[in-house]
Simulated assay, not measured.
Amino acid sequence: MSHLLKDIAVFFDASDAGRQILDCAAQLAGAQQAHLIGICAASPGEQPPQDAYAFGPALEDVAARQQSARDTQLLQAGQALAIAAARHDIHAEFRVIPYSESGSAAALHALYCDLLVVAEPAVGTPLSWSTTRMLQTSGVPLLRVPATWHSETIGRHIVLAWNASRPARRAVADALPLLVTAATVDLLLIDAQPQTGRYGDDPGADMAAYLARHGVHVELRSIASHDHSVAEAILAEAGARHADLIVFGAYSRLRLSEAVFGGVTRSLLAASPLPLFVSP
């Protein structure tokens, strides 16, 4: 198959939530025949109470116990990665980064990957983690999976949000390896009207034809938002279609507008109960 993800990275740790997101990433890597990079930020360790003090040998003992706890957590994380790799028959590597590592430094670990997988709330990430900052600095698409998501599948039934913008087109390209392997893909347009220079005379038809030529099982759906926001309309339609993944391009409007008015990107990131494939 020509359309495959080759390198997938995942932030995880040895917690239950960390193992859950690791298994999601490993399952996807197995389906895509991809190399998996497991990234874990070393925990800062247990913090002493604010009114506690340690001096001399006692201070050394506290430091030793914290280091031992970190070593144990990292050992468990590495073992979890090895088990997941064996279960899904994939090659994997383990990277440990400082908990205090900056967001821009952390982005370097994702820079040479096709996809970065993260949990929501995030686990295994550095102190300065920010989804929006990672999207802006790395240029790598994110698959964000809520901790409340317990379905065995991600990406079998996809809703692809399309508004004929540059970010939406980038999302199509980034997600194509998942789109071609999905059982169904709903190409979703919200409040789309025939418009020269954007949608054309038949909104979504050209993109649907493009996807079909790539082997995507696509169905065009154009709906009105009525009294709901675009993000609410997308989520409602995804729920009605029993989707297990929403694909969209981030920041279709000006960044200033996003910052001031919120926007579809922020609303989906804040409210989606479904996994999100977010393309920068």
Score class of each variant (00 low, 15 high):
64 A>T: 12
76 Q>S: 07
66 Q>D: 08
117 V>W: 04
3 H>Q: 15
27 Q>L: 15
191 D>L: 12
164 A>R: 07
196 T>N: 04
242 H>P: 01
227 D>V: 08
19 R>F: 03
238 A>R: 04
218 V>L: 06
203 P>E: 06
232 E>S: 12
155 G>T: 04
140 V>G: 02
256 L>Y: 14
24 C>D: 13
96 V>D: 02
127 L>C: 10
224 A>V: 02
57 P>R: 07
67 Q>Y: 05
73 Q>C: 03
226 H>G: 05
90 I>Y: 03
206 D>R: 13
72 T>W: 09
63 A>V: 07
113 C>W: 08
176 L>M: 14
139 G>H: 12
188 L>G: 04
138 S>P: 03
138 S>K: 03
128 S>E: 11
222 S>K: 06
78 G>L: 11
8 I>H: 02
124 G>L: 06
103 G>L: 15
158 I>Y: 02
121 P>A: 10
14 A>R: 08
173 A>G: 07
187 L>Q: 09
224 A>H: 10
117 V>D: 03
133 R>E: 09
179 L>A: 05
183 A>S: 15
232 E>R: 13
53 Y>L: 10
227 D>I: 08
225 S>T: 08
237 E>N: 12
256 L>K: 11
128 S>R: 10
249 G>N: 00
266 R>L: 06
74 L>V: 04
36 L>R: 03
81 L>Q: 00
216 V>L: 05
75 L>P: 00
17 A>H: 14
107 A>W: 10
16 D>T: 15
267 S>P: 02
190 I>E: 05
194 P>K: 07
113 C>Y: 06
50 Q>L: 11
62 V>S: 02
66 Q>C: 11
24 C>G: 05
237 E>S: 10
187 L>K: 13
181 T>L: 15
115 L>A: 10
109 H>M: 11
168 A>M: 07
79 Q>N: 07
249 G>S: 03
126 P>W: 04
124 G>F: 05
72 T>E: 11
198 R>V: 13
204 G>C: 11
95 R>F: 15
207 M>I: 14
54 A>Y: 05
65 R>D: 12
33 Q>I: 09
111 L>N: 13
57 P>I: 05
25 A>R: 00
179 L>P: 03
263 G>M: 03
260 V>A: 10
272 S>K: 09
146 P>F: 15
154 I>Y: 03
263 G>H: 09
180 V>P: 01
68 S>W: 05
186 D>W: 13
160 L>C: 10
236 A>I: 08
43 S>L: 05
93 E>Q: 15
241 R>K: 11
258 E>A: 06
65 R>F: 07
156 R>P: 00
238 A>Y: 04
123 V>S: 02
258 E>T: 08
236 A>G: 13
74 L>Y: 02
172 V>Q: 04
211 L>V: 03
111 L>S: 13
95 R>V: 15
135 L>P: 00
166 R>P: 00
129 W>C: 04
252 S>P: 07
174 D>K: 03
251 Y>P: 00
158 I>K: 00
225 S>A: 14
150 H>E: 08
245 L>T: 09
23 D>K: 02
200 G>D: 11
105 A>G: 13
50 Q>S: 10
116 L>D: 02
16 D>W: 03
132 T>P: 02
45 G>E: 06
21 I>C: 01
156 R>A: 12
48 P>N: 02
224 A>T: 13
277 F>C: 08
46 E>I: 12
130 S>D: 08
268 L>G: 00
107 A>F: 14
4 L>K: 14
100 S>C: 09
40 C>V: 15
188 L>E: 08
129 W>T: 05
241 R>W: 04
